[in-house]
Design a protein around this nucleic acid. Structure first.
Length: 596
RNA sequence: GGUCCUGUAGCUCAACUGGAUAGAGCAACUGCCUUCUAAGCAGUAGGUUAAAGGUUCGAGUCCUUUCAGGAUCACCA
């Protein structure tokens, strides 16, 4: 039983004994005592005054006295207004630490026996990944790790949008302006090559619109009549009809793009267990429309189009099949939802998709629930905010995007120059140095994108490059490297930091106590991060832990400490912090160095 | 226009889900490397939590209204 639970139970007993009133230990909570007051945990008395029928101070006194007398972990208390501040005795802190220290499975909770699929990344194959995709990928990967650490069996899925009008645009432009260029001859990564023609299409298309408008057409007409657009639409029809030349070109260009994506994913440290392709799934879902009609979830309009009526759920009517019997976006998503379930019998399904699709997923999930799907309650849209630039929104068609490959390379270069400047690569081989730069550059980038609450929009200013100081990835990585140095030294001078080496230690310093409290919070934060689908909670926690450790590091000596037990304890405490930082950062997809 | 999201220090973000005097980082200023890594630590300064009402012992957090920014509301994807 944890210290907190022991105290809560004792409080519950105290209410029964002192005020003859039942308070369920499950329904009350402690909070950390604010720094300016004495104590470790605080219990707020206000909500209970109606039962105690006493002033807040007196009520607190009564409970406090009971705790000191009857709860063995409580050593002292004080009451400020209605706040009962509780101090935990010294031995108990050491016990808490011993328990943590002996835990072999730090950061891995027991298996839940439930499967969850996390779909993320889901790129279009007509352009390279950009900054927005980075947030998506890092979020998706991190939340997968977090769910896995919480005992779920996780399947990471990538639903690749490999078909449609957008890729046809790249293909049309390639036919016009490509001149047989390949990634090899052009010296261009495959995804960048496809993106180049996507941009070329848009430029030429705009010129055509301009020309048509000068001839007197309205903008709307011109957009529809422009020859390039007609060509792209024709190409889409040919593709759907299975036209050989079209399909061959499509396959070729997509294969270039996949090579490019693979390189980027590898660099990012992101991987998938399952790929789905829209070219395989885009016709799915029509049978579900039939089923929905039979079940009365959908209805047919006069022109034959089929709709879901969600007005009683506070939403609108939503089209699920066109009058001509062809699919819309949501048709295919219904089909894919079933496909995922058929493949894996998942209990939960998480979609990491930007918040511009909030409404779409709201509709999709409500429909699947109405259809009585077994996974219906487990559907979750991990909706995240856009990454804005100071100049506004990113638009790939207009080329105003921050390219993912470029940004990653810039971060690594910055890490390299920064590290060299500080003279920190003495004794590194070139390879080791390179590895460190990647670790730091990516660490800074990932942490930057993950530390913010996913649902909030965030601003990225390319002019002010991402920091390496303060609340950053490298700060946490640095804290880990510092501890690694201490552990190396301890091993070198053969100082034992096994738990036996500091057993029976009488007292712990304030800074040490703070660290133990934080270390003890790790699992709680881990659970919270999963519950709220928020790596930001973990990021914030890791920063707090690293910050607290650095204070301890500056305040208290380790190897020059005269008491042998204290010396061992401080090394062990450091080791535990390092383990926690490392395990936590891993859940953010960030590696942690031994030296930096 | 309807619906949804967001608004906290100059900037980027927290605030344990309603608790004490709203906290960190960056930027600015002041100290601390002859002791385990100064990518660090300590300190100073910086706030009418967009605004106004309301709910109660207590509101950044809950309810209403207003303002600002964004998203969405296609037989597009």
């Amino acid at each position: 039983m944890t210290i907190q639970k022991q105290i809560l139970q004792a409080i519950s007993q105290a209410f029964a004994a002192t005020f003859d009133h039942q308070v369920d230990a499950e329904s009350i909570a402690l909070q950390p005592t604010r720094k300016e007051f004495e104590g470790n945990y605080t219990f707020v008395m206000f909500p209970f005054l109606k039962f105690t029928r006493m002033k807040p101070e007196e009520s607190g006194e009564k409970i406090g006295q009971y705790l000191v007398e009857n709860c063995e972990v409580v050593s002292a208390y004080n009451v400020v207004k209605g706040f009962l501040n509780i101090s935990v005795n010294e031995e108990s802190w050491l016990e808490v630490f011993q328990k943590l220290y002996k835990n072999e499975n730090l950061g891995q909770l027991p298996a839940k026996g439930e499967k969850v699929m996390v779909e993320f990344s889901s790129p279009n194959t007509n352009k390279p990944l950009h900054l927005g995709h980075l947030r998506n990928n890092f979020l998706g990967f991190s939340i997968s790790e977090i769910l896995s650490a919480n005992g779920y069996e996780v399947i990471k899925a990538n639903l690749v949008n490999d078909r449609g009008i957008h890729i046809c645009k790249s293909m049309v432009a390639y036919l016009h302006f490509g001149d047989g260029e390949t990634p090899e001859t052009g010296g261009l990564k495959g995804d960048h090559l496809a993106g180049k023609y996507y941009v070329l299409f848009d430029k030429a298309y705009k010129k055509e619109i301009q020309a048509l408008m000068e001839k007197g057409q309205t903008e709307e007409e011109a957009k529809k009549q422009a020859p390039l657009m007609l060509e792209a639409q024709e190409m889409l029809r040919k593709w759907e009809a299975g036209d050989e030349a079209t399909v061959t070109l499509w396959k070729t260009m997509n294969s270039w793009v996949y090579e490019g994506f693979d390189a980027t994913y590898k660099k990012m440290g992101v991987s998938f267990d399952q790929y789905y392709y829209e070219s395989d799934t885009y016709l799915l879902g029509k049978d579900i429309v039939e089923e929905g009609l039979e079940k009365g979830v959908f209805f047919k309009k006069e022109n034959g189009s089929i709709w879901a009526d969600l007005t009683d759920e506070g939403l609108d009517e939503k089209l699920v099949l066109r009058g001509d019997g062809t699919s819309v976006y949501i048709t295919q998503d219904m089909g894919t939802a079933d496909l995922k379930y058929d493949d894996y019998k998942i209990n939960k399904s998480v979609y990491v998709v930007g918040n511009e699709q909030d409404y779409h997923f709201d509709v999709l999930f409500k429909i699947m629930k109405k259809l009585g799907r077994p996974y219906g309650e487990g559907l979750y849209h991990l909706s995240y905010g856009m990454v804005d630039l100071p100049t506004g929104k990113m638009k790939s068609r207009e080329g105003t995007v921050v390219d993912a490959d470029d940004l990653i390379q810039e971060m690594i270069d910055t890490a390299a120059s920064h590290t060299k400047e500080l003279g920190k690569i003495e004794g590194f081989t070139d390879e080791q140095a390179e590895e460190l730069y990647e670790m730091l550059g990516l660490g800074a980038l990932k942490y930057f994108l993950l530390k913010v609450d996913p649902k909030k929009r965030m601003l990225f200013n390319p002019q002010e490059s991402i920091e390496f100081q303060g609340n950053t990835g490298p700060f946490i990585q640095y804290s880990h490297a510092r501890i690694a140095a201490i552990l190396r030294k301890a091993d070198q001078i053969e100082l034992s930091y096994q738990s036996e080496a500091f057993e029976g230690l009488g007292q712990v310093e304030k800074a040490e106590k703070e660290l133990i409290i934080l270390l003890n919070d790790f699992e709680k934060k881990l659970g919270q991060a999963a519950e709220e689908f928020s790596p930001a909670i973990l990021a914030q926690y890791l920063f707090d832990l690293a910050k607290e450790y650095n204070r301890f590091y500056a305040e208290l000596p380790i190897f020059s400490e005269s008491d042998e037990k204290v010396r061992s304890f401080r090394v062990a405490l450091s080791a535990q912090v390092a383990k926690t930082l490392s395990a936590g950062m891993k859940l953010l997809g960030i590696k942690v160095p031994e030296r930096m």
